[in-house]
Design a protein around this nucleic acid. Sequence first.
DNA 1: CCTCCCGTTGACAACGCTGTCCACGAACGT
DNA 2: ACGTTCGTGGACAGCGTTGTCAACGGGAGG
Lengths: 346, 346
Amino acid sequence: MTTLSPNGAAGVRKVRRATMNDVARLAGVSIKTVSRVVNDEAGVHPATAERVLAAIDQLGFRRNLSARNLRRGSSTGTVGLVLEDVGNPFYSGVTRAVEEVARLRGRQVITGSSDEDPARERELSLEFCSRRVDGLLVVPAGLQHGYLVPEMRAGTPVVFLDRPAGDVVADTVLVDNIGGTAEAVAHLASFGHRRIAFLGDAPDIFTANERLRGYREGCVRAGIGYHESLVVMGPHDEESVRKALQGLRNAADPATAVVTGNNRITVHAVRALAGSAERPALVGFDDFELADLLSPPVTVIAHDASALGKAAADLLFARLDGDGSPPRRVVLPVRLVARGSGEVPA
Amino acid sequence: MTTLSPNGAAGVRKVRRATMNDVARLAGVSIKTVSRVVNDEAGVHPATAERVLAAIDQLGFRRNLSARNLRRGSSTGTVGLVLEDVGNPFYSGVTRAVEEVARLRGRQVITGSSDEDPARERELSLEFCSRRVDGLLVVPAGLQHGYLVPEMRAGTPVVFLDRPAGDVVADTVLVDNIGGTAEAVAHLASFGHRRIAFLGDAPDIFTANERLRGYREGCVRAGIGYHESLVVMGPHDEESVRKALQGLRNAADPATAVVTGNNRITVHAVRALAGSAERPALVGFDDFELADLLSPPVTVIAHDASALGKAAADLLFARLDGDGSPPRRVVLPVRLVARGSGEVPA
DNA sequence: CCTCCCGTTGACAACGCTGTCCACGAACGT
DNA sequence: ACGTTCGTGGACAGCGTTGTCAACGGGAGG
C-alpha cells in the first residue's frame, strides 16, 4: 500500500518528470540508446537494454508524446469527436462506437459537447485541430463550417455525422430521416388515423427539419393532407411538450395520433400522456431503452447509434489511410419497430 | 460552398501546415512577433498585429499545441477519464459532468472505456499519462494501481471514482453502496417481505461486493437473517438474469422480493419479469430513465451520475490548484425513491 | 546636443524526442 | 597481415513554439 501526497508532490518537493536524458545518465548510455529501447528498435545489446529498462523503471520514466509527435511530425494518435451532448444516450452510443473503432486503429478519442451551440462547436473543433488530431468527427450544431476549410486543406479529414455541414462539401453520414418519418405516418394512417400531429425539435436543426419534411410527404402520400395546425416545432423540455400535446388534443378537431421528432421529445411525450385516458397513438423517432416495456409499448423509428458512429469512424479512417475519392454521403436505413402505441384506436 | 478533396489534399499535393515561420515570412516580421500576436501579448504595434493577423488568416495558420506544451512544460490542458463504458447511461452522465467542469476550467477531456478489463484500464491510464494529461480520473476495473504511483509522484493527480483503488491511497469519490442497499432491504422488510433475494454483479467488482455487504447488513438488521441461497452474483446479461430469477422464484421457499445490484441488472430483471403474474417486489440500485413509467414503476436507490462526476472533477481541479491536503474519500449519499415496485404484496 | 528611456522588434536557445550519420571494436575473408 | 563488414553506441540537428535578453529608433529631459 503506497501513500503519497495526493497532488503528487511526494513529501515536500515537486519532482520533475524524468526525461530520456535522466534515464540515459542513470543507465550510463546515450540518450539515443534509450530511445532505441523505448521504441523497440533493433541493434541494442540485451545487457544494455536491461540496464536501460531498469533505469526507466527506477525513475518512473514515461516518454513524452508531445515531444515525440512534434519531432516525428506525423500522427498524434487522436481523433476529435464533437457532438451535441455525451449525456444523451443516443450520442453516448455514438461515442462508444467511435471509441471502439479508434481503439482497433490505435487512436484515442477526444470528445466535447457543443450543446447545440454553433460557437461552441467551432471552438471545440478548432481546439481539436490545434491539438493536431488526426481527424475530426463533427455533429454540426450550426450551419457554417467554412472555418474548417483551412484545416481540411491542411490535411485533417473531417466527417460530419447525423447532420450535414452547412457550406462545405465533405463526407457525411446521416440516417434516413425523411423516409423514417414518412413511414411513421404511413403506419399510423394504415390504422385509420387521419389527424396525425408532428412534434419536432427547433426547425433550424437539420434533422428536425428533415423529419418535418418526411412527415409532410407521408401525410400527402397517405392522402390525408398536410395541416399546419398539426405541427409544433421547438418544444424540448417536459413542460413545453406537455403544453404542445394539450393544445393538439384540445383542438376543435383533435389529433388522434402523434409523431415525435426525437428520443427526448418522445420520452417527454410518454410522460405527459401517462395515465391519461384516450391517449393518442404515438410513434417516436429514435429507439430508446425500455420502450418495449412501457404500456403501451412505444412504436419507434429505430436506427442504430453504434452503426452511425461506426460508419462515420470507418469513413474517417479510410481517409486517413489515404482514400482520396470524392466526398461521400452515406445514408443509413431506419426501420419501424411496431410495438403497439402506433395502433391505438383512431 | 467550398469543395475540396475529402482527405484534405487540395487538388494534388498534400499541403504542409503553416507554421509561425511561414506566417512571419509572409507578414514580414520575426517569428517572435507572430508568437506575441497569437498569444495576445502586449507590445505589438496595431499595424503590425494587423499584418500578422492577415497572414494568419491567409495561410490558415493554427498554432501547434504539442509544440507549445512542450516548450512551456506546463499544462497540456487535458484531463483523462477512464471508465467502464461510455455507452452505459450512468457513465455517460459522469462523462458529461466531468466535461462540464473541465470546460469551465478550460480543459479538454480524453475518455476511454476499459470494459471492466484491468489491463485495458492500465493501458489507457498510462497512455493518458504519456500524453501528459494534467490529471486523471479513473473508475477502477482492477485492484492493482501501483502502476500509477510514478505518475502521481511525478505530479499527475489521480482521483478514483465509483470504486476505490486497490493498493494506492488516493482521492476517491464513492456512493454509499452499503447504506443504500441496506435501505432497500429495510424498505422491503417494512412491507412484510422476509424472503428477499439479492442479484448482483461479479463479486470482484467493488461496488457489487459492497452492495452485497449492504444487503447482508440490511437483512440482519431487519431480523430476517442472511441466507446464502438467496444471493446470486455474476449474471450480467439478459439470459443469465432471467435464469437467476427463475431459480429464486421456483425454490421451495421462493423469494418474494429482489434487490438488484445495478442499472443493467435491474433493466434485465424488469424485462424478465414483464408480463408474469405474481411478480416479486423489486428495488434496484441506480436510478434509470423511465423507471417511473413502467408498470409497476420501479423503486430504486438513486444516486446522481452528474454529482459523482462533478465531485470527482472538482476534487481533481482542487489538486491541480495546489491543494496538498491528505487524500480524501468522499462518499455521496443515495436516496431510496419509492415508486411502487418495492411494495408488491408479500 | 547628448543621454536616457520606452515602445517595439528580433536573435537565440531550449523544451523532449527521433532520424541521420558517423565512430569504434570485433570478427571475418583474402 | 590487411581491409571489410557487422553489431553496437553516440553526436548532432531540428520538429514548432516561447522565454530571455538585447537592439533599434525616436521623443523627452538635461
